[in-house]
């Protein structure tokens, strides 16, 4: 099967940074439709630069990005690519255009020239999907960070994209807002079949995903299912990433003689795993 997004040998260097190593240096990865993918990496690993390539905001200087068979370098396809791959950014304040929630959600479909009553339908549907329908007439600057970010997600969903890229959507949020956003995008992927690409440096946010890509120095250094990725605790620590607390706990227990599996990522699974091991040990 042809992957939904194919990134091949991507090379990108920002203007005025000629003496520094390129932000992206031969990045290659495939993302399949309907999957929930996390791209992890510390600051400066190139993950945000990569994100901006998925919908043609940045164009590859060499190599290629193909979305649904469309090359992002093809200018005639640019609008089609942008409505296929929606993007949510880090700072919710700087991506909300209008002074009323529903007007903001309507912004993208208005740009696409969709008829008024269809826009109305899409806006209501999108706001219900992110659980913000009752706030539709509110002013965005009075909402909490998590709510603003959900409005931003609704603004992207109203385009009916097949994929949403979220570039560190939780970096400026409190734990409550963080959970709201992660729960929302997980639901969008599982229930609505939208491909979700989550870019983050919080390992714990990647636990519920199907596939994790770890980036360093503009390259994908490892990829796999979250359990397998997190099992390489030492390797991740070397890359400056913190592993989820559950993985950290298992890692330390194993270091002092236990033989626990790294498959348990949630707190309850981890507790079960430890309880099971303790019971067996006593026998």
């Amino acid at each position: 099967m042809e992957p939904f997004i194919r990134v091949k040998d991507l090379l990108f260097r920002y203007e005025g940074e000629e003496e520094l190593p390129p932000a992206l240096d031969g990045t290659t990865l495939d993302i399949h439709e309907g999957s929930f993918v996390a791209i992890l990496g510390r600051n400066g690993s190139g993950k945000s630069t990569l994100a901006k390539h998925f919908n043609g905001i940045l164009l590859p200087q060499s190599g290629s990005v193909t979305v649904c068979g469309m090359d992002t370098k093809d200018e005639s396809k640019l609008l089609e690519i942008r409505r296929t791959v929606g993007m949510v950014f880090q700072n919710p304040d700087n991506q909300i255009v209008a002074s009323v929630v529903e007007d903001d959600v309507a912004f993208a479909p208005e740009n696409l020239g969709i008829p008024s009553d269809e826009i109305r339908r899409r806006v209501d549907e999108a706001l219900k999907l992110v659980d913000m329908y009752e706030y539709r007439r509110h002013s965005p600057h009075l909402l909490s960070g998590g709510q603003k970010q959900r409005v931003a997600i609704a603004g992207v969903i109203a385009m009916k994209p097949r994929c949403i890229v979220l570039d560190e959507p939780t970096a400026m949020l409190d734990p409550q807002g963080r959970r709201e956003v992660i729960d929302t995008v997980t639901r969008l992927c599982r229930e609505n079949g939208i491909t979700v690409i989550l870019i983050t440096h919080h390992m714990s946010e990647a636990t519920g995903t199907d596939r994790v890509f770890v980036m360093e120095g503009g390259k994908v250094v490892c990829e796999g299912e979250p359990q397998n990725i997190f099992a390489g605790v030492e390797c991740l620590k070397k890359l400056g990433l913190t592993v989820p607390d559950t993985t950290e706990l298992i890692y330390r227990l194993n270091a002092s003689g236990f033989e626990l599996g790294y498959g348990a990522l949630t707190v309850s699974d981890c507790a079960k795993e430890i309880a099971f091991a303790l019971k067996n040990k006593r026998l």
Partner: peptide, 22 residues
Amino acid sequence: ELATAMEARCYHGGEGRTRMKK
């Protein structure tokens, strides 16, 4: 940042734009 976000939401000037609230 706002300009990038608007671009990502398919803003391309006033041409062919419709309105939700006519």
